[in-house]
Every structure is written in C-alpha cells, then in structure tokens.
Simulated assay, not measured.
Amino acid sequence: MGQSDDLYAVADFCLVPMGTGESSVAEYVAECVRVLEKTGLKFKVRAPVRSGYGTNLEGPWSAVMQAIHDCHAAVHAKGAPRIATDIRIGTRVDREIEPGTGNDHKVKRVEEILAKDQKS
C-alpha cells in the first residue's frame, strides 16, 4: 500500500444529539441518513433489536470520517446544540476487502459458525 492509498475502514458509529429537549431523536437520525445516502458509501442503520443502536459504515478512511463529520454538521444545523458520537473502526491490510463487503463478510462468518452449532 502506497503512502497516498487510503485504508479501507469498516466503522460502527452511534451519533447522539443532546440538548434538544425532545424525547425522540428520530428526526436527527433521519437527517444523518440523508447525509449518508449522498456519500455513495455502504451503510446500515441498526435499530436496538439484537444489534444495538448505531450505524455500520464502510469505505475509504477519509470518506468515512468525512461522512461522520457531515452527519455532525447536518444534525447541528437541524438544531442539536451538542452531539456525542462513539466510533469503532476496523482496518486490515493482510487481505483485500471488496468494497462494500467488509461488515457483511464478518456477519456471514459468525452466522456460518452458529449454523454449525445448530447442526451438532
């Protein structure tokens, strides 16, 4: 990998608007989704069923970071005075990751292992 090459990142982030005075953050999450849809990056918003709150996002490191930045800017513009975001990012250089498949591959491997357990 050359110095100008961007690492491929598989990120999980949870953006939490604060100080809005509202009990629901759905409008703010929707605004972030609108931003992500424009990026062309692969993403999946998760509901708190089995997988917890948050969004999986993957692509070149700089594009992933820019997308999270743009979500912050959009949610602030929508009226949230404060935002707290937790981010976990994984990268690897030991094998090529086909763009858009980083997180799906991980989930599929776990499902395959669990399926073997059920057959036993």
Rank of each mutant, 00 (worst) to 15 (best):
M1L: 01
S4D: 14
D5C: 11
L7T: 03
Y8M: 10
D12G: 00
F13W: 11
L15R: 06
L15C: 02
P17I: 03
G19M: 06
E27V: 11
E27S: 13
Y28G: 07
Y28M: 00
V29D: 06
V29Y: 09
C32I: 04
V33Q: 12
V35Y: 12
L36Y: 08
K38W: 06
K38E: 14
G40C: 05
G40Y: 06
L41P: 07
F43P: 10
K44F: 01
R46Q: 12
R46L: 14
P48T: 00
V49A: 06
V49W: 04
R50M: 14
G54Y: 08
G54V: 00
T55V: 10
T55W: 07
T55Q: 09
N56P: 05
N56L: 15
L57N: 06
L57E: 05
E58K: 11
S62F: 05
A63T: 01
A63L: 02
Q66P: 01
I68Y: 04
I68D: 07
H69F: 04
D70T: 07
C71V: 01
C71L: 06
A73H: 10
V75D: 01
V75N: 01
P81V: 03
I83Q: 04
D86H: 09
R88M: 12
G90N: 12
V93M: 13
V93N: 08
V93K: 11
V93E: 10
R95T: 02
E96D: 14
I97C: 10
G100M: 04
G100D: 10
T101Q: 11
N103S: 07
N103Y: 11
H105Q: 12
K106V: 15
K108F: 15
K108M: 14
R109N: 05
V110R: 15
V110C: 14
E111S: 08
E112G: 05
I113Q: 10
I113T: 14
I113C: 08
A115M: 05
A115P: 08
K116M: 09
K116Y: 03
Q118A: 15
S120G: 14
